[in-house]
């Protein structure tokens, strides 16, 4: 009976679902269009030259990692209150993708800093904050992996997700006071007018949208995989702890 329910929920040939597949296709198309715009349409920066094109991927990834960590916070909070696995799946998927994005934002930043600032790394507030953020969410994934059981790992990760998110503004202010070469924001409410050429702004916004679709695709895919992981764990448990052939 219960195993019927298990098999009913997965479609063996297409475990990811129709929406996710279409989103994946859209993500691919938008990414290719984005690359076309970044390399063939966008002008080279007057001061920074060709390498400035990193901007179009560096900033969207940094922005979306914040969105990911916000989702971790929401998922963790609701999970601790309702204890339904759905919210833990969201928090888990968002943590993992957030860590991937923040890692890439840090690495592309490091690669960009070398030719522009002459150093790979500087202890500038935003870089330092981002590094601390990376450490917090890596710890969040570690505590889940090292917990004595899946259910406990979910609770511990949720606690770290909430505490870590609450800590972010304080980290930002303290690091800001502690040190202050990162360019001032060129988009968003703090931007100075005219800091970014209109064509550059338009391509940046397109890039942000493309990355948002990629982000959503990865998130839905990761949630689906996590659901399968839960089912596989349930199946393994049901078969009396016997390791099934495909078990990792």
């Amino acid at each position: 009976m219960s195993s019927d329910a298990v098999t009913a929920r997965i479609s063996p040939a297409k475990p990811l679902g129709q929406t996710t597949r279409w989103l994946g296709l859209l993500a691919l198309v938008l990414t290719l269009a984005d690359l076309y715009l970044i390399f063939l349409v966008a002008p080279a920066d007057a001061v920074l030259g060709q390498v400035q094109r990193i901007f179009y991927i560096h900033v969207p990834m940094a922005v979306l990692s914040f969105l990911a960590f916000f989702l971790v916070f929401v998922g963790s909070l609701v999970f601790l209150m309702r204890r339904t696995p759905r919210w833990d799946r969201l928090a888990h998927a968002a943590t993992e993708i957030g860590v991937v994005l923040v890692t890439l934002a840090l690495l592309t930043g490091i690669i960009w800093a070398r030719p522009v600032w002459g150093v790979w790394w500087t202890w500038e507030p935003r870089l330092t904050t981002t590094l601390i953020l990376w450490l917090i969410y890596v710890a969040c994934l570690m505590v889940r992996a090292y917990a004595p059981s899946r259910s406990r790992g979910a609770v511990y990760a949720a606690v770290v997700g909430i505490i870590g998110f609450a800590d972010v503004p304080i980290v930002y202010y303290s690091v800001q006071w502690w040190r202050s070469i990162h360019p001032a924001p060129v988009v968003g409410p703090l931007a100075e007018a005219g800091a970014l050429e209109p064509i550059m702004l338009a391509i940046f916004l397109f890039s942000l949208a493309a990355f948002l679709v990629v982000f959503l695709y990865l998130l839905l895919q990761r949630i689906a995989v996590r659901r399968l992981e839960d089912q596989a764990a349930g199946v393994r448990l049901a078969s009396g702890g016997q390791a099934s052939p495909g078990a990792p």
């Binding site: 098999t7 399968l228 596989a232 495909g246």
Partner: peptide
Amino acid sequence: MAWRANSLAREIRASSP
């Protein structure tokens, strides 16, 4: 992730009644 989804789905199918 796509590969993992497929391999997990195969495992679940293999161990279902």
